[in-house]
Amino acid sequence: MAWSLPRKVSAALLAILLCTAAATAIFGYSKFEGVLSSLVRSRYSVVVFSIKKDIEDRLALGLPLRQLRQVQDAIEREKIDQPQIQGIEVFDAAGEIIFDTDRGAVGAAVSQDWVQAAQAAGHQTFARSEEDSLIVGLPLVDVLGRVVGAGALRYPAASVAEEVRPLLAGQARSGLILLAGFAALAVLGTYAVLAPFGRRLAAMERQLQTTMAEGGPPPAPADNDPFEARFAAFAASTREALEHMQDATQDVGRLDRLEVRE
């Protein structure tokens, strides 16, 4: 099916509208989530930092990491204080868990990826994500400046977005309605802008057909529009050419017949 011009233009406009809305929504939400999750991470990193400080002070007293029994109590206290925390673990440089809020995990190994992250982090926090939890960790640095392990805190990944999701869902619904409204406006607007254009083309078309068929007067140049002026001139000269041809044909015919008759 052939598409009329307003249809093509409004399709293009709608496509642009849709893509723009999608892009802004995705980027906007992604930025928001980024800001929010960095905020959440920084909050938990405060917790990890206090644990780190506690452990490092004790390490500085010359105690080996695995003998800092008080750390187990400290991390369990933190978890009770902040129930959203899924778990806190302290592991040594080899990745063996020394203390864990989940006591059953003590002695197990964390993934080598964490160990490397801790080694690379220096004094900075490192972040990791697992299936449905996020991890923020801080390396433990001893008096020699060596990373002897790390403390890591595990918190639910979902909690970040969950709180705002209902709000945003409502927002998305009203946004879609609004978009639909403006999409309709776009279509109407396109037709409004291009309708006179189409009408004038149709009018010129009819004009030309009449001029050519009935030999009516050529259309008067309208509106100072050079195109319409050119069109009028065209219609006139075509008509004129047509008449010339017809006259000439008649003349030739007349000459032809005249001689035959004679």
């Binding site: 802004t24 906007g28 009203s174 946004g175 609004l178 409204g181 999409a183 776009a186 607007g189």
Partner: peptide, 14 residues
Amino acid sequence: LAALVLLPPMAIIF
């Protein structure tokens, strides 16, 4: 027209 249909809804939604 494009500006009219593109910018206001984005502004309102945002």
